[in-house]
Design a protein around this nucleic acid. Sequence first.
DNA 1: AACCCATTGAGGTGTGCAACTCTTTTTGAC
DNA 2: GTCAAAAAGAGTTGCACACCTCAATGGGTT
Lengths: 341, 341
Amino acid sequence: MGKMTLEDVAREAGVSLATVDRVVNGRMGVHARTIERVNAAIKQLGFLSDPHASRLARVRDYDFRIILPTGENEFMQNLDAEFRATRERQLQERVRLSIEHVDTFDGVAVAAALESLPSGIDGVAVVALDHPAVTEAINALADSGVVVLTLVSDVPNSRRAHYVGIDNFAAGRTAASLIGRFVGPREGKVGMIAGSLALRDHIERQFGFEQIISREYPNLEVLPVREARDENARVEAAAGALLKDHSDLVAIYNAGGGQAGVIKALEASGHVSDVIFVAHELTPSTRRHLVRGTVDALINQDAGHMARSTARILTALREGRPIVPGQEHIRIDIFLRDNMP
Amino acid sequence: MGKMTLEDVAREAGVSLATVDRVVNGRMGVHARTIERVNAAIKQLGFLSDPHASRLARVRDYDFRIILPTGENEFMQNLDAEFRATRERQLQERVRLSIEHVDTFDGVAVAAALESLPSGIDGVAVVALDHPAVTEAINALADSGVVVLTLVSDVPNSRRAHYVGIDNFAAGRTAASLIGRFVGPREGKVGMIAGSLALRDHIERQFGFEQIISREYPNLEVLPVREARDENARVEAAAGALLKDHSDLVAIYNAGGGQAGVIKALEASGHVSDVIFVAHELTPSTRRHLVRGTVDALINQDAGHMARSTARILTALREGRPIVPGQEHIRIDIFLRDNMP
DNA sequence: AACCCATTGAGGTGTGCAACTCTTTTTGAC
DNA sequence: GTCAAAAAGAGTTGCACACCTCAATGGGTT
């Protein structure tokens, strides 16, 4: 079966082109029986609408909204920049991305942002925290035919169509393995800092981290997690306290943002070289400290990949086309000094 | 400036649409002076041809050739499978990929394969070894207007348009860092096995590996590299010899294929748990042994990404469109037991 | 002056689909 | 059996470009 056109389908189904068009695009005014016939013909001929032709013919651009957190988190700023770059490229593709910012730590605010979206929106991608109001808002949107994607942190019990981000359990486990192997046979304590345990991604990282340390590295003991809201100052205080209170501290894992805070505390304590530090997200600053050795390993999710993937998935789902799983899977990148991009 | 069309360019340049079309598509029969005027108008208006419209209007499909190695190398078989999957998807995009196999270890054979390509081909991607005959063949193709990409292993002094693969120096350095850190303060010898030092990627990996070990890990000593042509049996013999000849062997780095050989030798020697083993490429077999702990870390280049990237780059270059560097950069993936996809 | 040939223009057709209008046919309620 | 509403058909146009034909222009040649 070569290239099938709508006309072939129309002929096969014994209906007119207009009817096939109505069925394919889910417009009303077609008898259920006829819809069946058309769908049968489509399946039988293996018809796949030509994406170029349909994008060319489309009058209206797709209108997608991206909802990102406010705040100083470097990764989020990076993600924002990547979305802006993607937006420029997508304009040629008749896809419009608009980027909004809300306080992600506030579930009600996120829900409000979702609820106040104008109708006519084709899809949303949102960095959401796992809060009942957010779940409700997502479900309402999904039910009204809007494609909803969760970004960075998932809301798994909602009807979001897809999650764009890494497996955060696995990320936590990876951090644990790196620390366990880098520390070696030494005994000691491991400190963990998170942004907020209201964010699902951070809880998951914590869970994975503690699981592996306790199971595989009996020489290590994880100290109680400290929350620091991804803010440099608070992170610095938390790391400083860890270093001061525990003379046998051998490693720090910062699962959230504010890496600069840990670095400052490490430098102030004079333990840069004997305390292993594993952090998240490749930024100009973490990159520099990875080269210097202050940071021993970075766990990263590629912001550019996420932005491009989000755009691709939104349009694919909107058009009812399949997505390519391998292409859209966000990897847990491990960066050492030597394999940075 | 919004969406510019060919018609806008024609108006701006003061010529007809037909002439603009001739210039844009490189057809003959236009005065040099006129070509200049049209190009100036294009640049001034920031015109970018709509990829959907042009693909839709094009009668002929693009015809790209992919030249892969014969042999049992698991990564190459994986790459082959990914190219086949990509081919199916690209058919809808009016792009035809055909996949050939030649003996990559034979420079003359690779060159012959390149030279015997039918004219009318739009582009080639080839896993090439760095051999004068190959360089010549690539240059000849490039000069005749064919887009040439190198795959996996580069031929940097040729006029290939792009290289799709990882930085192999960095991959070697990464392997060294992993081994250095996993071994810890222990002293001992490190064995390295490569496929063939006639392949540029393996030389580069060796170089990067030895550079880091000698510079950063004075407790380790790299033994002379053994070539094993990516064949399981030869690799097993090489690894077995390493294990037998050096009682103070603390790590093995296999820069080529045939990981199963190393695993067999390790298991036979009883040193599975105390000899660190770092290998390349995630395959069903290496994956299994990474979980079991026989393999301590894997360095990977994503075959799916490479196949998709190759297709995108070929068509983009063929159409004179820019490529997105971040999207086409092939990462050096580090996989531990915990972050496998 | 007659002629040649490189340039250029004009215009048409095709591409596969979205979206719209205008008819015609069918269906179902009363 | 009547009539309106629902369903289906027919036909057109637009999208931005590729590709082709045919004709016109004009400078240079002999």
